[in-house]
Amino acid sequence: MAGSLPQEGLSRRTLRSETLLVLALSLGASALSALISFIGSVTRPGGLADQAATLNGSHAPGRPWLDLAWQLFGIASALVPVALVAHLLTRERAGLGMIGFDLRRPWSDLGRGTLVAAGIGSAGLAFYLVVRAAGFNLTVVPENLPDVWWKYPVLILSAVQNSVVEEVIVVGYLLRRLDQLGWSPMAALAASSVLRGSYHLYQGIGGFVGNMVMGVVFVLLYRRWGRVGPLVAAHALLDIVAFVGYGLLAGKVGWLPTP
C-alpha cells in the first residue's frame, strides 16, 4: 500500500538512503555513465548515426578462454545488486516473491512475456530504424563477439542478466520503495521510466525515448499484474532476438544497419 512502511518500521530516511545506494551500485551508475557517453558522442565530429554503440564486445581479442572468463565475470557481477535487493526485501518476510520474481506462475509469466515482447519488439525495431535514419541515434551493434563456440550461449546469458537486473530493480524494487516513501503512482511511473531511458542514453536520443516509452508500458503492466516475472521474460526475449539475430543477420540483409 502506498506510504506504508515495512514491518520492521524502517524510517523513510533509511528507505531513501537504501534506494539511492542500490541505484548507485547498479542502474543509477549506468545512467550517469550513459550520460557521459552521450555527451562524448554529440561533441564528437560527425553525426550520431556515423558512430556505433556496441552492447556485447570482446574483452580479450584473440584469447577466447580469457575472453569467456571476462564475459562470465561481467554477467555474474552485474547480478550482485539483484542479490542485494533480495536480501533487503527479506526484511519484509517475502523476498523477491513480493514483487513477483519467483516460479509460482512460470507458464503464465512466459506467455504474457512472449505477447509483450512480440508487440514491443516490432514497434521498437521500426522506431530504431527511423530515428537512426533521422540522425538521432548511434548505430547499435548488439554483439561483436568472436566466432567461437560460446558466442551464442554468452549472448543468451547476457540477455537474461539484463532483463533480471533491469526489471527487478527499476520496476519491482524501485516502485515498491517509492510507494513506501509516499510517492504518487504517476510520479513513481515517471521516475522509473525516465531512469530506464537514461541508462540507454549512450545509444542516442532514440535509445532514451524508446526505452522511456517501454518503461511506461512495463510499469503499467506491473501495476496490473503485480509481477515482474512477465516483464523479465519479455525483456529477455527481446534481447535474445536482438543479440542472436544481429549475430546471424549482420552483413547479410540490407535493412539492418552496421558500422
Score class of each variant (00 low, 15 high):
F243W: 07
I120T: 08
R224A: 14
S26P: 04
Y152F: 14
G121L: 13
V216R: 01
G28E: 03
R13I: 14
L27F: 14
G251S: 10
G119L: 04
N56P: 00
V219L: 04
S26D: 07
P259I: 04
S37F: 11
W70K: 13
T114V: 07
R91A: 12
L125H: 00
P257G: 08
G206C: 11
W183K: 06
W183T: 02
T14R: 13
I156E: 04
F136S: 03
G135I: 12
A118F: 13
A191Y: 00
V130T: 10
G172P: 01
S77C: 00
P185F: 08
V228R: 02
V42L: 05
V131D: 06
G182P: 01
G62L: 12
P106D: 02
V209Q: 01
L178F: 14
D109Q: 04
L20T: 03
A236Y: 06
Q161E: 15
V217I: 15
H200E: 03
G210F: 09
G46S: 10
Y202G: 01
V165C: 02
G207C: 07
S163F: 09
W183P: 02
V42I: 14
P185E: 05
A123H: 02
A34V: 10
V160Y: 06
P106C: 10
W183Q: 03
A187C: 05
V130N: 00
L103Y: 06
V80F: 02
P230D: 07
A236S: 15
I75V: 14
G100R: 06
Q71D: 05
R13C: 09
D50A: 15
Y246S: 04
L231W: 11
L201V: 02
A34S: 15
V140G: 01
M98E: 12
V165R: 02
V160K: 04
S192C: 09
H87G: 01
S30R: 11
S33F: 14
A191F: 13
Q7N: 06
E92A: 07
